[in-house]
Amino acid sequence: MRWPALARTTHKWLALIIAVQAVFWTLSGLYMSAVHIDIIHGDRLVKAVAPQPLALAGLVEPAHLAHMAPGLKSLRLDTQLGKPVYIVETTAGHDLFDARTGRALSPLGEADIRARAKALYAGEGDIVSLELLTKVPGEIKSRPAPIWRAEFEGAWRPTFYISPQTGELVARRHDLWRTYDFVWMFHIMDYENRTDVNNILLRVATWMALATSLTGAWLLLYSFRRRRRARRSVA
């Protein structure tokens, strides 16, 4: 077999196996590069609030809080809905306290979560659904349950996940994120968990793709002619 014929045959047979996946790779790659990662992360969904200096006078002392929350590991003083709160981590989990009165706020009820969701959301739309999930959905796999899910009216179905124990925004999702996660699955060929970038299918397919692209490059050597010579042969 002559070299050009060999190049063409190998390229064509390799492509037969890998072409569909190559289309998936390029399309998913184009999506991931074209839609900015900050948009995917939903940065614009959350109202940007510049941190304000905390007024410490009159707040419950951390020493006092240590008695109220047995097994205390760490605590944070933060502001929620304009009021100072302590977010406490104990050996048993997380808890939220009013930093002025020392009253335990967690687990937060529907009204408290609704107020926080509305205050956090940067969009115009209202909350269309609010529910307490006891099992975390696939889109926030690693987060602890129970968790509140607030879906808003607005483009791409914006969704906030808020912890009933800390009152904090744990995750934000919208359809552009969901699409990214979906095309990422095609990109890394982990069609089960969308996490393993070292799976055997991907390893085999990527090396085959490299062979396909290399034989393609080889084929290019035989694919172009100088026009002048072509004309002369016609004449």
């Binding site: 790659g29 970038v197 793709a209 490299l210 396909t212």
Partner: peptide, 12 residues
């Protein structure tokens, strides 16, 4: 494309 397939294969 050669570089993408190569770097992709290496990262895998």
């Amino acid at each position: 494309f050669v570089l993408w397939t190569f770097s992709g294969a290496a990262m895998a």
